[in-house]
Design a protein around this nucleic acid. Structure first.
Length: 273
DNA sequence: CTCTATGTTTAATT
DNA sequence: GAATTAAACATAGA
């Protein structure tokens, strides 16, 4: 379940169990998830280390260790971390496990699950390239309207595709982009360079509000809260919560997109040709 | 059987 | 070059 809000929730939970704890065992034999690393390097880098910090940028998690090395975790499409009893039996679905001893004397264990195995676990001495390439994180850094407007002005690509570009803003995926554009009343197919300054502002506010809303929905124990928080994502054919018009489904930048054709307007302004 | 899926990278095409 | 599109990855569920 991995977009910015989900990864932020995962970060907070991991931080509670891991910071100050010392890693006693670390195991993974999943070469796909560890790519381009190896099971041996994974264990060797982690065992004996104490966790200093658990951070996040965009959809990446970064666990910093006492020797300065780091474990990066990207959840892909289906990745997730769970905490379990230290002696709980290994389940076949577990792609990695890390057992720690905490300062309070209690032991803990976290397991990485990832059905589709698009996720990554990377150990490195320094920050990896993918981390450094990320644009500003809307939750950590806020959204610089001027900078965003400049990114949009440079290209005519569909605004939704630019929103999902991790170098423009880090952490926005298909759900956040779909929901924020609905909230800002902007057609996802609008060329980014056609957005007015006030539309960019409305979009920035919509992104911030959607992140806050999903953080609450996904942080709650209620299983249904996750889907209930969506206004249009996955709701093609259902009525728009705002105007009642049937939600449309289309493809933008290769990804399924839901939108309301009545209340999300297509900007066509400033264009060449 | 077919289609879809919260992501990213790479190859192919325009 | 840039920019867009399709395919690929691996797996589960409808």
């Amino acid at each position: 379940m991995p977009e910015l809000p989900d990864v932020e929730i995962a970060r907070r939970r991991l931080k509670k169990t891991l910071v100050g704890a010392t890693i006693r065992r670390a195991h993974s034999d999943d070469r796909r998830v560890l790519r381009p690393g190896s099971p041996r390097a994974f264990g060797r880098a982690l065992v004996g280390r104490t966790v200093r910090d658990v951070g996040r940028r965009g959809k990446w998690l970064r666990i910093v260790l006492d020797d300065g090395s780091r474990l990066f975790s990207h959840l892909g499409m289906s990745g997730w971390w769970v905490a379990v009893e230290i002696d709980s039996p290994r389940r076949p679905s577990e792609r990695a496990r890390i057992d720690v001893a905490r300062k309070n004397g209690r032991a803990a264990s976290i397991r990485y699950l990832d059905g589709r195995r698009f996720g990554r676990l990377i150990v490195a001495r320094d920050d990896i390239e993918e981390w450094g390439a990320l644009g500003p994180d809307p939750f950590l850094d806020g959204i610089d309207r001027t900078r965003l407007a400049k990114s949009f002005a440079r290209r005519r690509t569909a605004v939704k595709s630019l929103l999902m570009d991790q170098e423009v803003l880090a952490g926005i995926g298909n759900i956040l982009a779909t929901e924020a554009l609905w909230r800002a009343r902007i057609d996802p197919r609008s060329p980014s360079s056609s957005l007015s300054r006030s539309e960019v502002g409305a979009l920035a506010r919509a992104i911030e509000a959607t992140i806050r809303q999903e953080l609450v929905a996904r942080g709650s124990a209620d299983e249904d809260a996750w889907e209930d928080a969506f206004s249009v994502y996955g709701r093609a054919g259902a009525p728009c919560p705002r105007c009642g018009t049937t939600i449309q489904r289309t493809i933008v930048g290769g990804r399924t997109t839901a939108f309301c054709r009545r209340c999300q307007t297509l900007s066509t302004g400033a264009r060449r040709s």
